[in-house]
């Protein structure tokens, strides 16, 4: 019963940004991925976050699990170069064969390094 506050935090997405800050303050290299556009059915709304470190640890989500692997991979480059990028996934994208969305939706994800 007393755990209510913690449960709320998850639904508010609090843990992802807080976790990213905690990782950074602990000296780790961190990237933050954010859903910036969606079309059709997509499991996570605009504004959803995924935080990734250089050891490929991650917290949060930007889809129902279908593109996280690819985003975590791309995030490594963003951490190295420091340059943000927009990743596009969906049925019209060539990546669809590799990491398509089972739901048939499309999603754009912005990935940036936490400096």
């Amino acid at each position: 019963m007393a755990a209510d506050a913690g449960v709320t935090a998850i639904s508010k997405d609090d843990d992802v940004l807080n976790e990213a800050r905690a990782w950074r303050e602990g000296g780790r290299d961190v990237a933050i991925a954010t859903v910036i556009r969606t079309w059709g059915s997509s499991p996570r709304p605009v504004g959803s976050h995924l935080a990734i470190d250089s050891g490929q640890n991650f917290v949060g989500s930007v889809s129902g699990g279908c593109i996280e692997g690819a985003v975590i991979h791309e995030a490594q480059e963003v951490i190295e170069t420091g340059k943000p990028k927009v990743l596009e996934y969906g049925v019209t994208n060539e990546l669809a064969w590799e990491v398509g969305l089972a739901c048939g939706g499309q999603v754009h994800v912005y990935v940036e390094k936490l400096d």
Binding site: R24, I32, D115
Partner: peptide
């Protein structure tokens, strides 16, 4: 993103 921005 700058860490200061995230903190803010």
């Amino acid at each position: 993103m700058k860490t200061e921005t995230l903190q803010r």
